[in-house]
Design a protein around this nucleic acid. Structure first.
Lengths: 190, 190
DNA sequence: CTCGCCATGTAATGAGTTACATGATTTA
DNA sequence: TAAATCATGTAACTCATTACATGGCGAG
């Protein structure tokens, strides 16, 4: 359901499906990834429902574009969603499931390797977010608290990503230390 | 895909679909929620594939139960999944999307209210996880680092939940403070 | 002339939710 | 006797991914 509202939100100004995909890649994908095909399907549905209007426009480069803009009903629906309660959806972490059952292999070295790789991946993610933040900070002297409202809200979601990534890294570190301590005790006890 | 492996993992000992659902509610749902109907569908698929065997057994209370146990192929598949790399899936947060677009309403009070409610919900989640941790700590003197391997691994995933929830709460606090500061500046500037 | 980007779509498949259907046994 | 718990399942629908199909335009 949220994808519909995210597309409506991105359509402050008229855009094509292709444009929207670029906007996803440039930030939105951090909290809501979307494939191009899914964007197209959702745009069609929104138009059928009367939340969007579309018109065909020539492109500077490549084939004709279908440009969408909000219809009044779409704006109304978007605003109702925004004015509503925060939506906390389910979350699924495969890697947590793997940790949960990893005791079955009874191989502390393998578990340690698992966490080391995970830490590596999460660090990459964290660094990527930090790079975005720092690029932003360099580009605008108002960063972060005197940014215009639109950018300020976008920056808030970037902060969520940073807090979350940092927490998971801390969890990895904590787990690695605790696992090592267990291995040490085992050796001593044996 | 992970649901299959989670079910395989939970089937250390033979269980029915109904039993499995109870295990989800008792912890696994924190990182992988599953509906009973989905559990049944997945069990059937796993049996068709030869990863599980089933037999019907009388119940102490209520109708006959279909009890599943791992087939060797299932154990093999589970172990391959566990020995593989950590799987980092996509994550989708509706409430981050709401924050991203909330500037459109240009109503700082409403945004503040949004974060206040979100903080409330996240606090409840955090407190629930803390209660689990504390109950566990009271019940076993080995908690947390001298727990048997199975419980230790389960406890690691509980810690992930706690770290994550704490990070999001910090983000709420940070955002509320920054929003209030912005409102203050606006009043002063006007 | 080929590769990469621009641009739009459909089809098949997978994973999950919600609603529905059925019925036994125990407890209040 | 009504409600809660035990117990299994199917059907319809939604959301999303992956693969496929098509083609224009510009740069090297």
């Amino acid at each position: 359901m949220s994808l519909e509202f995210i597309i409506l939100g991105l359509l402050r100004a008229p855009k094509s499906g292709y444009d929207l995909k670029a906007e996803f890649e440039a930030g939105v994908a951090n909290f809501w990834p979307a494939e191009l095909s899914q964007v197209y399907v959702t745009l069609k549905r929104l138009r059928r429902r009367g939340w969007l209007r579309d018109r065909v426009a020539a492109s500077a480069k490549g084939p004709a574009r279908r440009v969408y803009r909000r219809a009044p009903a779409g704006t109304k629906a978007l605003h109702a969603w925004l004015a509503g309660e925060p939506l906390i959806g389910d979350e699924r972490y495969s890697y947590a499931a793997q940790v949960y059952f990893l005791d079955e292999l009874a191989d502390a070295q393998l578990t340690l390797r698992f966490f080391t790789i995970l830490r590596q991946r999460l660090t990459e993610r964290y660094d990527a977010l930090r790079a975005i933040e720092q690029g932003w900070a360099k580009a605008s002297p108002e960063y972060p608290d005197r940014l215009p409202s639109e950018e300020f809200h976008q920056q808030l979601t970037l902060r969520l990503g940073l807090h979350t990534a940092a927490a998971r890294l801390m969890w990895c570190e904590e787990s690695i230390h605790r696992l090592r301590a267990r291995v040490g005790r085992r050796k001593k006890d044996a």
